[in-house]
């Protein structure tokens, strides 16, 4: 998969989500479902078997009325880089059905190869992976809207957010046709980013200083991509997962919920975990 053509600098696609702007409206969730042929069932109230590549968590500060605060946190796949391209989920997959693409930084999922052992799900601390417990069934007529760019998944395999990789492919195809090898920032945007009415999601190449994501998060690539911008954080950063989804919030309690902290540790001031969880 790691088709890094040597004329091109490796990309590192990522996201920054502004939690101050996110309204919890759910548009990103549905933008993703509609883009990626995500199936649905008659009862989706068991959230542990409901496929939502983009999931919205409701965080609270745990305080009683009227000091209560809440904040929504959208969670796509973090497209973890781990150490040197070994995300928690990729190194465990026995059949190489999920892979880290060094050219884009995207963690892929090959549905036709996955045999459904679910080891990757156990490995992912973000619950970003979903199993197809059921055959996907669309009611009469509804198959009409399915997109040919993303294959519907069969029962018994794992799926997850792909950073809308097919959009990257379509954009690259177009660029190739036009004799270009590089994409403009706007040419490859994920469906959720594009839909978000609040403009809370920014998507782009974290390696490209001209891209908004880089400007907002200012990732320190020398130190596992740790954000150097204030109020920007990542989820469970210290586990060494090296996620490419960054969050920002002006509220400390929100930032503090982004990671596990010992009581004496200050928000944001933690050493990154040893990144040798693979072999």
């Amino acid at each position: 998969m790691n088709k890094t053509h040597n004329t091109q600098k490796a990309k590192k696609y990522g996201m920054v989500i502004d939690l101050d702007k996110c309204t919890g409206c759910g548009a990103c969730m549905v933008a993703c479902m509609a883009e990626n042929n995500v199936p649905f069932k008659k009862d989706e109230t068991n959230k542990l078997d409901s496929i939502t590549w983009m999931h919205l968590y409701k965080l609270t500060n745990g305080k009683a009325f009227p000091e209560t605060e809440i904040c929504y946190l959208p969670r796509p796949c973090m497209h973890c880089e781990g150490a040197h391209g070994h995300p928690p989920c990729v190194s465990v997959c026995p059949a190489t059905a999920t892979d880290y693409d060094h050219g884009t930084g995207i963690v892929s999922q090959i549905y036709t190869r996955c045999f459904g052992c679910r080891y990757c799900m156990g490995a992912c601390p973000y619950h970003a992976r979903y199993f197809n417990w059921w055959d996907p069934v669309w009611p009469e007529g509804m198959k009409e809207y399915l997109s040919p760019n993303v294959s519907p998944r069969m029962r018994g395999v794992v799926e997850k957010c792909s950073f809308c990789f097919h959009r990257y492919q379509l954009a690259m195809d177009k660029a190739y046709h036009e004799g270009r090898k590089e994409l403009e920032e706007h040419e490859y945007q994920s469906s959720c980013t594009q839909a978000c009415p609040a403009g809370a999601i920014t998507f782009g190449d974290l390696n490209n200083p001209d891209h908004q994501v880089h400007k907002i998060a200012r990732p320190d690539n020398e130190h596992g991509g740790k954000p150097s911008a204030t109020n920007v954080f990542r989820l469970l950063e210290r586990l060494g997962t090296n996620p490419k989804v960054y969050y920002m919030s002006s509220r400390e309690w929100v930032r503090r919920l982004g990671d596990n902290y010992l009581p004496h540790e200050k928000t944001g001031e933690i050493a990154l975990g040893k990144q040798k969880g693979h072999h």
Binding site: C25, A27, V30, A31, A34, Y145, A195, C196, P197
Partner: peptide
């Protein structure tokens, strides 16, 4: 076949944004 509804970028109301219901319109 209509396969996806997106927000129209140059429309004065929403400038590319779209809500959850609009997105699910094909259903």
């Amino acid at each position: 076949r209509a396969i996806k509804i997106e927000g129209r970028k140059d429309f004065p109301v929403n400038q590319g944004g779209i809500c959850i219901l609009g997105l699910a319109g094909l259903q």
